[in-house]
Amino acid sequence: MTSQRGPGRPRASSAATIHEAALELFLERGYDAVSVDDIARRAGVSRGTFFSYCDSKADALWGVLDAAIERAGDAIADGQGDALQRLVDAIARAVEPWGSTPPTALRDAQAMGAVQALRDGAPARLQPLVDRAALALALEHDALPESADAAVAPVAVVAAACAALVAWTGTAARSSAALAVRDAIEPIAAALRMRNDPHC
């Protein structure tokens, strides 16, 4: 594949087009060798348009992953009932669209040389999800969001979900992403629930 996309790609200014162009280039050249200008050129947009959708090159890497994190956060905020179960359900539903095929950013992270960029970006990108879950737990237990029970449980569940997705991505015969996540985090949520309420 050449570094310049031919006239077949329509000029567009969507985040999805920028994300797709970035992943193509990361696979071709490696994450570190690609610049924002390269991505903008491949996507057929100006540098200014790139920055209207992404704050950095790393943002272009995270497109599909950010969308899943946002879906999960919205589902927790909108849901009813047990907050830990809502977190489990929200994460599983958020990755359902992936089916049994990992997103390129996860599947090809090693080939793109982007593993470190994903690791570096994960804490800040996952924090809003953790915060929403902590707030839901705090409201459920009439506690402060920064209380130990409300703050620790979401971190444990989200971290386990991330580890499960990384393991799932590296498995040849894959179940669905949603099932892999549920299998990993439902027992953790159940144990945390028991710890907080021995009568449940």
Rank of each mutant, 00 (worst) to 15 (best):
R119F: 15
L126P: 02
V155R: 12
D108F: 11
D120T: 10
D66K: 01
G44E: 09
L144W: 14
P145Q: 05
E140G: 12
E70N: 09
G73I: 00
S35C: 11
A58S: 14
W98F: 13
P97L: 07
I69E: 07
A148L: 15
D66H: 06
A124C: 02
V155D: 05
A105T: 02
T49C: 09
R86G: 09
A33Y: 11
D38Y: 04
P102H: 12
R107M: 15
Q127N: 04
A90C: 07
D149V: 10
I91R: 00
V34M: 13
A143K: 09
E70P: 01
P102D: 08
A156Y: 04
A77M: 00
V130Q: 02
V152L: 15
R42S: 12
V157M: 09
D82R: 04
E140K: 06
G79M: 01
A150Y: 06
K57T: 04
T101P: 06
A75H: 00
V88H: 01
D108R: 11
D89Q: 10
A90V: 01
L135A: 04
L129N: 01
A153C: 09
S100M: 04
K57V: 12
L137F: 01
D38H: 12
V34L: 08
L84G: 13
L84S: 09
A94L: 03
A150P: 05
R47Q: 11
Q80L: 03
L129T: 09
A136S: 10
C162W: 14
Q127R: 10
I76T: 01
R86F: 08
P123K: 05
P128V: 10
W98E: 03
G79F: 00
A133V: 03
W98L: 04
H141C: 13
A150R: 01
A124D: 14
E70M: 10
A150E: 03
R42M: 13
T169G: 08
I91F: 03
Q116I: 11
A143I: 00
M112Q: 02
V157D: 07
A148E: 15
V45K: 00
A109C: 04
Q127K: 03
A124N: 08
A83Q: 02
D66P: 01
E96C: 08
A134E: 00
A105S: 12
S147G: 15
Q80F: 05
G48D: 12
T104W: 07
A109G: 12
A133E: 00
L135I: 03
A83H: 03
Y53M: 11
P102R: 08
I69Q: 08
V130H: 01
G170R: 07
G73H: 01
S100D: 15
K57C: 13
L165C: 06
A68F: 10
A60K: 01
P145I: 07
A138S: 08
L61A: 13
A133P: 02
L165R: 06
S46G: 13
L135V: 10
A167R: 06
G81S: 07
S147H: 05
T101S: 14
A109V: 01
V115G: 11
G113Q: 06
A105H: 07
A43I: 03
D78F: 12
S52R: 12
M112F: 03
V166L: 11
A111S: 10
A109L: 06
S56F: 11
D78K: 07
V157G: 07
A167Y: 08
S147N: 05
V36F: 13
S147A: 15
A156Q: 13
S100G: 07
T101C: 11
